[in-house]
């Protein structure tokens, strides 16, 4: 025990950062509990779709496919999910349709990139342009979703002082699901056979192939699971978070998610932490706008989270290493 304490590096930046975070939190609480709770809670709400969207990126890139079509996937699924819910008067059917749309969109992406070896950036761009054009064209004003989701407090956890009220209370089902899905992806990626194979396919598909692993199938499956998550996020935003569909509602979320994925080093938990941090920055910016910091124009406050992302990426980018085969279509060597 004493050795553990002795060997712990109190000067490490991680330690200092956590101390600073806790201190800041406690300070904020003592200053104004309600506002702090609402900032943290809305930080989680902003952060969750980003975190889930970056899971799409992780699923694809760890298996060797760069997917910049997350944006389009979410847009299309949000669209179908919302209008199906609106016409069928059932948000559960809407969510299912959103997820199926995500799977279908990513299937198209997977066929283009994995089966036909198309450039992955172009394939993603096609998805994005298609989604934006199609949803704007078919968009009809005035639809609403019939009902809302039940809201949960997680038993026990929501009673934790300081954290409980903001993190574990008043959660919608999708947000709740996300909190379980992300650790589950981490476990699958790092502890299971499926994860080892996925990573091997993303690092050196040749090695996986010679070990008898079907590279194409592995990649297709992963990209489509990613698509399902993308559809879930689209549905989450349109059916739970916002409750409506607006043109191009994603507004760069998919790309921000990719940045957060890199910041989190392709690690689900890392990306989740990055997304929550980003969400908090956004919540804080919103709060500042409400208080109206008089002599600073609003626009400057709105860009804060993005500036923050750029800074973080700039400082951490040097050390990151993406999966070695990400972006490279796999073809059996013919020599």
């Amino acid at each position: 025990m004493l050795n553990t304490i002795k060997s712990f590096n109190f000067k490490s930046w991680k330690f200092l950062l956590s101390v600073a975070t806790v201190a800041l939190w406690i300070y904020c609480y003592s200053a104004n509990m309600d506002i702090t709770n609402s900032v943290v809670a809305s930080g989680m709400r902003f952060g969750m779709p980003l975190a889930l969207a970056s899971m799409v990126g992780i699923m694809c890139e760890r298996s060797g496919v760069i997917n910049i079509g997350i944006e389009g996937t979410m847009l299309l699924s949000g669209f179908t999910g919302f209008y199906v819910a609106s016409y069928s008067k059932n948000i559960v059917i809407g969510l299912v349709i959103a997820i199926l749309t995500g799977v279908l969109t990513s299937f198209v992406h997977a066929m283009m990139t994995i089966k036909w070896g198309m450039d992955q950036i172009i394939a993603g761009t096609i998805i994005n342009i298609l989604a934006s054009g199609l949803t704007s064209f078919l968009y009809r004003e005035g639809s609403t979703v019939p009902n809302t989701w039940p809201i949960f407090d997680i038993p026990v956890l929501s009673k934790i002082p300081l954290l409980g009220a903001s993190l574990f209370s008043q959660l919608g089902p999708i947000q709740l699901f996300g909190m379980f899905l992300i650790p589950a992806i981490w476990v699958m990626m790092n502890k299971t056979r499926w994860g080892l194979r996925t990573r091997s396919v993303g690092e050196n598909p040749g090695a996986a192939d010679t070990a008898g692993i079907n590279v194409i199938r592995m990649r297709m499956t992963n990209v489509m699971i990613g698509g399902a998550i993308g559809g879930l996020v689209g549905g989450f935003i349109c059916l739970e978070l916002v409750g409506s569909f607006s043109k191009d509602f994603t507004a760069g979320t998919g790309f921000t998610a990719l940045a957060l994925m890199i910041f989190g080093r392709w690690n689900p938990l890392g990306a989740f932490a990055a997304a929550i941090l980003f969400g908090l920055a956004q919540a804080l910016a919103t709060q500042l706008q409400i208080f109206g910091v008089n002599n600073v124009p609003n626009q400057f406050i709105t860009i804060l989270p993005y500036v923050f992302t750029i800074l973080v990426l700039a400082f951490s980018a040097g050390k990151v290493r993406p999966p070695a085969a990400a972006g490279k279509p796999y073809e059996k060597e013919q020599s």
């Binding site: 080892l196 990573r199 091997s200 690092e203 050196n204 040749g206 090695a207 996986a208 192939d209 010679t210 070990a211 290493r321 070695a324």
Partner: peptide, 10 residues
């Protein structure tokens, strides 16, 4: 194989 089929980071 002549060119090793290994995953270097594992």
């Amino acid at each position: 194989h002549q060119h090793f089929q290994l995953v270097p980071v594992m």
